[in-house]
Design a protein around this nucleic acid. Structure first.
Length: 567
RNA sequence: GACCCCAUCGUCUAGUCAGGUCUAGGACACCUGGUUUUCAUCCAGGCAACAGGGGUUCGAAUCCCCUUGGGGUCGCCA
């Protein structure tokens, strides 16, 4: 079914993603960007990126570029926007709103001259007091248009005096009809909108004004954004009418929630840390192993006092590590670090509020572009289910060839944990990748579970957990005894290869353990890794190498007496 | 509180716009059994939903209304 075309003279589809540079791209924003991108790509349109940095207090250029990297990692490229790694540019820019002040001023002046906007001089404190009073009287607050009663002379004088002032839009009477591809027709009743501010006291436009001007000038045909903007759309429509702009076509996307139904937000990380702090009864700022204080007393106290205070990202990460808690993945960057594949994230995200139908669930970006349409976008909100994302990631990893997996894992390690890959020879790492390929769901899992490969032989410790006890102590010929027998056998191997190891261990098991390889494999696994989980035992031994294996088995046997007596 | 949005298995969803083919399909999760040297795979099977009430109709998951529940917005933030 063809999409409706915009009412502008141009029929070109143009969508835009317009983040404010106040942090990293989170999954909600990523999905919005993805839908904008897929929609325009599928219809030979253009996708633009615009940075909404009209808040001087909060914007920073670094986080603006962070967005770009997240988008690039996902494979979402833009035709127009900030120039970054070869894409961007375009002649409807600049694409940073802070660089478009003169443009906004020009259109604002038109409104002022037409009497469709007016100066107002109330201070933020006065307005806050008005809101508070209305709240206490249980009445809805609306700006009372007091400034509309000011005579021109007063206004001129006050402005000449340099009195701080804002510009408000004079909202016309009448209901506002929003036509939305996803939601259908929505009516905002007359009188619901107040005369909202369109220019702040610092001379910057507010979001509403900048968006309307930019979307018109950048010839945006479709505005696809989160449903939290639905109420704003009414404001944008009255502004468009006043400025004589055509209306873009709107599509409001439902929100993405946590499994518990709360809105998925960056704050969830802070919540997870607070929960751990309470659970572990941490009272004072933790001290790191090198003696440094993780957080200053003051900061800690401030953070403890109010749930509105959030720890800076770096400190939050350190504290989480210290407490041993895994922070929930919220930002695209979190998923990248956690070893998810970008194609999988895109696939999963696209299924939140959309589906191609026909029971098709797993697909690549090309398929998404080909099949995406706004009329299949759902109205209802979706909960983010990590288990399903994980299952998709696993499927994608299992579908790779050995070479592809080695390449992906190598890139991942180089980027996230270079010390891991640097500690192995290329041969070892390639064996490590091969043996982990069939059993991992993320690129991070092998690294997490493979820490023992990097340990110094002298540092391997054995915690006598139940399964470890079983492996080492149970049976007529217990694990320790098998290790005693295995040591010289392995020592005598002519070649330290997977094949030789398998022959030797299997042969030993056939003779001394009724052919039950597990009886022998588990003690070996425990001896060399410290635990009961590792890649297949022959792979594990082969990767570790002769010297380490023999040394670790010997050390385990040396510790036999003390380990046997620990309960 | 006011305004607005939403409602199919635990979760994501197909089916809804053009009412019958729906004793409601798929996927993830979960449960059971099998394979397996650990973990994980893999194979077979299973559990599980149209929020409630009223209408319209020969017929409603599908259309209408109400109720209930969930969510969003109400900033000189975006």
């Amino acid at each position: 079914m063809p999409e409706p075309v915009p009412s502008t003279s141009s029929t070109m589809i143009r969508t835009r993603f317009a983040p404010s540079p106040t942090g990293h791209l989170h999954v909600g924003g990523a999905r919005t960007a993805l839908f904008c991108w897929a929609f325009s790509r599928g219809l030979d349109g253009r996708f633009l990126l615009r940075i909404e940095d009209t808040d001087q207090k909060r914007s920073s250029i670094e986080s603006g570029l962070g967005f770009c990297e997240d988008l690039e990692w996902l494979g979402i490229d833009w035709d127009e926007g900030p120039v970054h790694n070869g894409h961007g540019g375009g002649d409807t820019g600049p694409y940073f709103q802070s660089e478009r002040l003169a443009i906004y001023a020009e259109h604002l002046l038109r409104l002022l001259e037409d009497g469709k906007a007016y100066y107002a001089f109330e201070t933020p404190e006065e307005l806050a007091a008005g809101r508070k009073a209305a709240r206490e009287a249980k009445k809805p607050y609306k700006y009372d248009r007091a400034a509309l009663g000011l005579d021109q002379e007063t206004i001129d004088t006050w402005i000449a005096e340099g009195r701080p002032h804002v510009v408000r839009f004079k909202v016309p009477d009448g209901p506002v009809n929003i036509s939305d591809i996803v939601l259908g027709d929505v009516v905002v009743p007359s009188g619901e909108l107040e005369d909202f501010i369109i220019q702040k006291a610092d001379g910057f436009p507010t979001y509403h004004f900048a968006v309307v001007v930019d979307d018109a000038l950048m010839e945006v045909s479709h505005v696809i954004r989160g449903q939290e903007h639905l109420n704003n759309t009414a404001k944008h429509i009255v502004l468009q009418d006043a400025l004589g702009f055509d209306r873009p076509i709107y599509a409001h996307l439902s929100l993405i929630f946590n499994p518990d139904g709360s809105k998925m937000s960056k704050r969830d990380k802070d919540k997870a840390i607070r929960a751990a702090v309470v659970e572990q009864g941490v009272e004072s700022p933790p001290i790191l192993s090198d003696g440094a204080e993780l957080i200053s007393e003051d900061e800690w106290a401030r953070w403890k006092r109010s749930k509105d205070v959030q720890l800076p990202q770096a400190q939050a990460a350190l504290l989480a590590e210290h407490l041993g808690v895994d922070l929930p993945e919220i930002d695209v960057e979190d998923f990248k670090r956690a070893g998810y594949l970008p194609g999988v994230l895109i696939n999963y995200l696209s299924l939140l509020g959309w589906s191609p139908g026909n029971d098709i669930e797993q697909f690549d970006a090309a398929f998404l572009v080909k099949s995406f349409s706004l009329d299949r976008v759902l109205k209802s909100p979706a909960k983010f289910d990590r288990a399903k994302l994980l299952a998709f990631n696993q499927d994608a990893i299992q579908a790779m060839s050995g070479e592809e997996f080695l390449k992906e894992l190598t890139e991942f390690c180089r980027r996230e944990v270079p010390e891991f890959i640097d500690a192995m020879t290329p041969g070892q790492f390639s064996m490590f990748a091969e043996s982990n390929h069939p059993r991992c769901r993320t690129l991070l899992e092998p690294i997490r579970s493979g820490g023992f490969f990097l340990q110094d032989d002298a540092e391997v410790q054995w915690q006598m957990s139940k399964p470890v006890r079983k492996a080492l102590l149970n049976g007529e010929t217990c694990g320790f005894d098998h290790l005693v027998n295995l040591l010289p056998l392995l020592e005598g191997l002519s070649e330290w290869s997977r094949e030789q190891l398998e022959t030797a261990v299997d042969g030993y098991a056939a003779e001394h353990a009724e052919g039950k390889v597990g009886k022998v494999a588990q003690p070996l696994r425990v001896a060399v890794s410290g635990g009961t989980v590792s890649p297949p035992i022959y792979d594990t031994l082969a990767i570790l190498g002769r010297e380490s294996v023999l040394c670790r088995i010997q050390r385990c046997l040396d510790a036999r007496q003390s380990l046997s007596s620990t309960s």
